[in-house]
Amino acid sequence: MTKNFAEYDQTSSVDKIASTLRKAIFEGYFLPGEQLKGVALSRSLGVSRGSVREALRILATEGLVEHLPNKGASVRKLSLEEIDDIFLTRHILEIQAVHSIPIASEEAVQAMIESTRAYEGVANIDDQVTIAAAHITFHKAFVGLTGSMKLACLEESLMQDLQVIIACIENDRDDLQKEIANHKALTQMVLDGDIGSAEKWVDEYIPIGKEFVIEHILAEKKNPRLGR
């Protein structure tokens, strides 16, 4: 698909190009698995192909773009097996976070409170990149209750792997306020030391999230331009 980027600020800055493409991916102009053709992008953006290549490398480090032999760059597309693995690992991490509630440091709890406020703060904006970042930060802070930065960063990485799919789903949904309220409820469970409710939250939330992602992928296979 060739996107007209005329509404974006055209600039030769590689970071700005990456930002423009990132926004386009999150808004669903480019779907998972779709090729990102350097010539077409450079023409649309009014920049050099070299600058586009550098911008795509930046997005590759973020897990948004992948480079395949003889196919060039495309929006990263996860297999069903990868999604199974991601949600299985996330469930383990978040259950560990629940069990860590009684021993979580004040700093870790405060980080979760702040991430909740930040997530609430994006409730009324129309920017999928910012919304996804706030969502990821919340779950990273949640797993941060374990006191392990490695586990928190692993959760962040897993969430980043899912961010394109989640953004595409959110473009077709109208329940961000409900989603934020749901996460706010988890934070209150943490503050109340309610391990039982928090564990139930994770046990219900993770499978629902996985189901949404799989349904979206299967729908895309049937209709690659769904939601355009």
Rank of each mutant, 00 (worst) to 15 (best):
G147D: 05
H216G: 05
V122P: 03
F87I: 09
S157H: 11
Q163C: 00
L21A: 02
V122D: 01
S157M: 11
V39S: 11
I195R: 13
H91G: 12
T2Y: 00
L162A: 03
I195W: 08
D174W: 10
H216T: 04
E7P: 08
R76F: 01
R173M: 07
I25A: 04
A111E: 10
A181S: 08
L191N: 12
I131N: 03
K178G: 12
V164W: 04
I101W: 01
V202G: 01
G50I: 07
E107Q: 13
I217W: 07
L68Y: 08
Q35R: 13
A132E: 13
A18W: 03
I136D: 08
E114M: 12
T2V: 14
E215K: 14
M189C: 05
E27D: 15
S79M: 03
P69S: 04
Q10E: 09
I180D: 02
C153G: 09
L158C: 11
K140G: 15
G63F: 03
T146H: 04
I103D: 12
D161I: 00
H216N: 07
L154T: 14
K140Y: 06
L88M: 13
D84C: 08
E27T: 10
G193H: 04
S51P: 02
N70V: 11
I166H: 10
M1F: 14
D9I: 13
L158I: 09
D175Y: 02
T146E: 03
D85A: 15
A198P: 02
C153E: 15
E106F: 11
G209R: 03
A141D: 06
S12I: 14
H216W: 07
K184R: 15
V98H: 02
I195A: 00
F87E: 07
K200D: 12
L59T: 03
T89G: 07
V47T: 15
A134S: 15
W201T: 05
G227C: 06
E155Y: 06
A104N: 03
Q177F: 07
S48I: 06
V164T: 07
I92W: 08
Y29Q: 11
R173K: 15
Q128R: 10
Q35D: 09
I206S: 01
S197W: 00
T130S: 12
E81A: 12
L78C: 08
M149R: 13
S42Y: 05
S12Q: 14
N171V: 02
G193Q: 01
I103E: 12
